[in-house]
Amino acid sequence: MEVPDQRLSAATFEELALPLFEQLYNFAHWLAQDAAEAEDLVQETYVKALRGFSGFQLGTNFRAWMFRILRNTFLTSRTGLKSTVVSDEEIETIPSAAPNPETVLIERANREMVRQGLTELPVPFREILLLCEVEEMSYEEIAQVLTIPVGTVMSRLFRARRALRSLLVEKFKGVQNGV
């Protein structure tokens, strides 16, 4: 969503920011894993964004900007601080098993299983999968939200998919063994 090169006003902000409301809320809830906290995050994001809107750089991606504010707000929240004590370098080395492609498994894994898998993933993996698949953001946009290079987006996404796949393998085995 590129912002036209014109003077920005409160009305413009509303027109741009309100359509993102549901997406931001969904993302916030996934990060915080709590409805009340998600509301606080979204509220704070809108307040911060409105305040910083005059300094918003024209021609840059508005959606990525909003998501970045939300994510930074989360990272400095109590839950956020607890959940992401790992640095970027450490994230890149989080081990994730590389099972053979289990296409049948993914096909048979139901939505609830995938939801559980996403919930259990570390935040850096969960957020990148949501931005890519649910928000359908390009690597460039994701890089802007997470403030990491595009190359890191690619490698982290790859690792996140592997991690989710191995979680699903475990879950699937659990179901088969009646656990």
Binding site: F21, A38, T103, I106, A109, V114, L118, E133, V134, L164
Partner: peptide, 21 residues
């Protein structure tokens, strides 16, 4: 592998649209 990825993308997209304000 590509087929698996496509299926995984779809499952995550469906499962990830979860919370409504």
């Amino acid at each position: 592998y590509a087929l698996g990825l496509v299926q995984m993308k779809r499952s995550i997209a469906a499962a990830g649209k979860r919370y409504q304000p």
